[in-house]
């Protein structure tokens, strides 16, 4: 199991991999926002949670269409399906590798961007924890979309359309966790986010495996 995880993370980290791309995209979007809405720090702090969450989701979706497609095209997916691992395990591991290569680095970078958006320290912590809890759900639900669009030639185009509405709760609760600190009114966002993320991570591999399975029958 760890063999597949290690291989996927390695492939993502090497030249031409997706890890750096996602980070650069995340930082790039975060830089454009102040240019668009103005640089007053109080206003930026107010929207930081939402903006960074949206940017993180988009950055994580960026390389998602290749999650299974690269292995599908070069025949690796056939071999993975025939390996001792079940397809459900393959789906879960590949989603985890995607998280390690994108969600985790994004989370680690987020406090820096949060400082640039004028977030106070306690809100930075909330942003960090919310991304840490919530980005696994992005990878897990994204993997479902990647599996479904596996045989679509330009799957990258419809993948966001499929996945984004499903991720609305993650963005809502994630940004809500930052607002909780800013407003000082407890709202339970982190608990809700954790529950959502947990369910997404537990249930998604089954849907992903079903989607991959039907695409292998070609």
């Amino acid at each position: 199991m760890s063999a597949l995880l290690l291989r996927d993370v390695r492939l993502a980290a090497r030249a031409g991999g997706s890890a750096m791309l996602a980070l650069a995209f995340f930082a790039g979007v975060a830089t454009l926002v102040p240019l668009g809405v103005g640089a007053e720090l109080p206003r930026l702090a107010r929207i930081a949670g939402g903006v960074l969450w949206v940017a993180a989701v988009l950055a994580a979706l960026l390389a998602l269409d290749r999650l299974f497609q690269a292995d599908f095209e070069d025949g690796s997916l056939d071999l993975l399906a025939l390996s001792p691992l079940s397809l459900e395990a393959v789906a879960a591991i590949k989603a985890s590798a995607h998280w390690l290569a994108t969600g985790l680095p994004l989370t680690l970078l987020s406090p820096l961007l949060g400082v640039m958006f004028g977030l106070p320290p306690r809100a930075l912590l909330a942003l960090f924890v919310s991304l840490l809890l919530g980005t696994p759900a992005v990878s897990a639900l994204g993997a479902v979309g990647a599996g479904l669009t596996l045989s679509v030639r330009r799957g990258g185009l419809i993948l966001p359309l499929i996945v984004l509405p499903l991720l609305a709760p993650a963005v809502i609760f994630g940004a809500g966790a930052v607002l909780e600190v800013l407003d000082g009114i407890p709202n339970g966002a982190l608990g809700l986010l954790g529950a959502f993320s947990f369910c997404a991570c537990v249930l998604s591999p089954f849907a992903t495996a079903a989607a991959v399975r039907l695409n292998l029958g070609s």
């Binding site: 479902v144 479904l148 509405p165 499903l166 609305a168 609760f173 809500g176 959502f196 849907a207």
Partner: peptide
């Protein structure tokens, strides 16, 4: 089959989306 899987994933997620939007 692909669309059916998506419809079911959506059906499971729809109440959660509904709830999260109300919460929001």
């Amino acid at each position: 089959r692909a669309a059916a899987i998506l419809a079911l994933v959506g059906a499971v997620n729809l109440p959660v989306i509904e709830f999260s939007v109300q919460w929001w």
